[in-house]
Simulated assay, not measured.
Amino acid sequence: MKTKHSVSLTYIKISLGILLTLLGACGQRQEKPAQANTNAPAPTPVPTILTQDMVVDTLTAYGQAHPNDTLVLISTPKGDIKIRLYKDTPLHRANFVRLANYGFFDKTVFFRVEKDFMIQGGRSDFQTMKIGSYKIPAEIKPHYFHKRGAVGMARYGDDQNPERMSSNKDFYIVQGHKLPDYELQANIKEFNLNLTPAQKRVYRTQGGAPNLDQTFTVIGEVIDGIEVVDSIAAVPVDQTKWPINDVGMKVKVIR
């Protein structure tokens, strides 16, 4: 998926001065050294910058350390969206939980919005946290499909990315639309889809985006707040599909 790239990084360096005691005149008692300020805020933790050869081991270990973290709350100016992450896409779940716990998404926005299709987030012009340029190995499962409310990870096309590895940060939520049978059959033929009868029924009655099926990793689904997705999908956008007024987010793991 085509996105804007404008991420800058800075490090904050904190230096501690050495406090020297002052000696008084002859015969006077020496003053006590000044005490350190114990109320100073602790520095914000930052994630280890991952390289591609570290991804599988690091995310596997993180997932094992957070085995029950599957519920995530995305708070936006339009309202809250609660999503459930799937456990059988473990690398993607661990990556999303890890970034959420570090506060990475809190300085990002929904930067691509296409009404009746999807909303995509995970970038902004103001994000400074450095995470590395790694990609996540594909975890495409046939039983997960792009129904309305599905959550997936974006990726570059097959020509640049034949392994279909996912972006480390760009996620999308499907809004979609109900597909009449002729449109659904056209998608099945064009994209060579193998859908179950139940999946076809969901596309007809609830809607979704079958053109993404079996080529992108679906990592979870909206369990509350789909109307917020509809509201974000309706905002005015520029020629690149970026909302005219940024729609930011706060992302919190709530288990």
Rank of each mutant, 00 (worst) to 15 (best):
G132Q: 11
T51A: 11
L193M: 09
S167K: 08
I254S: 00
A234H: 04
P162D: 08
N194I: 10
Y182F: 15
Q206M: 11
I49P: 03
T51N: 12
I74Y: 06
I18P: 00
T38P: 03
L71R: 12
G122Y: 08
V55D: 05
S166G: 03
M165H: 14
K189E: 14
V253R: 04
F96W: 02
H5R: 10
K250P: 02
R164K: 15
V72E: 05
I136C: 07
V174D: 10
L212H: 04
A36W: 07
A233M: 06
M129K: 01
P197M: 07
S167A: 12
I254P: 05
R164D: 04
K115F: 06
T240E: 14
R123W: 06
F117K: 01
L91R: 04
G149E: 09
V56Y: 10
P236S: 11
V229P: 05
Y62S: 07
K141A: 13
S166D: 15
E31Q: 14
T21S: 14
A94C: 01
T76P: 09
R123M: 12
L85C: 09
K189R: 11
Q35H: 02
Q30E: 10
Q64M: 12
V151R: 06
K135S: 13
A61C: 01
K2V: 12
L19D: 14
S167I: 04
I12N: 14
Q185M: 14
V218C: 08
T196C: 11
F126H: 13
S231H: 02
V228W: 05
F104N: 03
T48Y: 10
G208M: 07
L20T: 06
